[in-house]
Design a binder for these strands. Sequence first.
DNA 1: GCTAGTATGCACCTTTTGGTAAGTACCAGG
DNA 2: CCTGGTACTTACCAAAAGGTGCATACTAGC
Lengths: 121, 121
Amino acid sequence: MTTSNFVCGLDASLAVIGGKWKPLILFHLAYEARRYGDLRRAIGNVSDKMLIQQLKELEADGIVARHDFKEIPPRVEYSLTSFGQTLAEALKPLCAWGTEHMSAVEKLMSRREPFGSKKIA
Amino acid sequence: MTTSNFVCGLDASLAVIGGKWKPLILFHLAYEARRYGDLRRAIGNVSDKMLIQQLKELEADGIVARHDFKEIPPRVEYSLTSFGQTLAEALKPLCAWGTEHMSAVEKLMSRREPFGSKKIA
DNA sequence: GCTAGTATGCACCTTTTGGTAAGTACCAGG
DNA sequence: CCTGGTACTTACCAAAAGGTGCATACTAGC
């Protein structure tokens, strides 16, 4: 039903950065502009479809800017917009929190789904 | 299998608050402890299954504490743990960002799915 | 003996999301 | 001419997340 009404700002923020690869994209673009292939290699195990999709959403949301050099072979650079930079700033404490408690969170996540433990026995 | 290894703290944080209702739960528990039914009414359009599920995950993650009064009829209170409070602190700037840009984000989200709000015709 | 209200569990189903594999247009090098 | 590298698209699929509704144990009220 997508009641596009957020009760707290958290919902709005998470709607923007909620994709699987978006935090990583933000993370890598925070330093500098990057070419598409460069970004993909930096992230590592992401497929083209996913990366493009997430980049397009972030672009549509005004977080990242796409600069197409119109060259052959294709050359496209992605960077944070100023709006995206305000988001990156707001994300810093959360990123710090995650870094600080990363090992604890990793343990929790691995316990959440060890292996098929909900099978009919 | 998703290697539970986070490259940046953002991933870890989002793994914890990534549920659909978790931001809301955090939001409501940030002020004070609340009984289950109280919380459900505060959130509004959440189902029992979802709320319980999210609460259990947050509890397993050490973010919220569950206090069962062992009474009949049942009475259970949920509150933030001190760990949960550190998370809430880290979330503040992001929440502020979301609040600040809420109307913009709402527009973006509604454009993402042109169906808007489904009404029973 | 009903129903209501408490907090929660369980089975089933739908929607959303993420992932895989292929194909596009273009040019350089072998 | 075939391969590789660029950036990107598309069709199809699997898995996860979310949602609905009924069931539980217990008491109070009608």
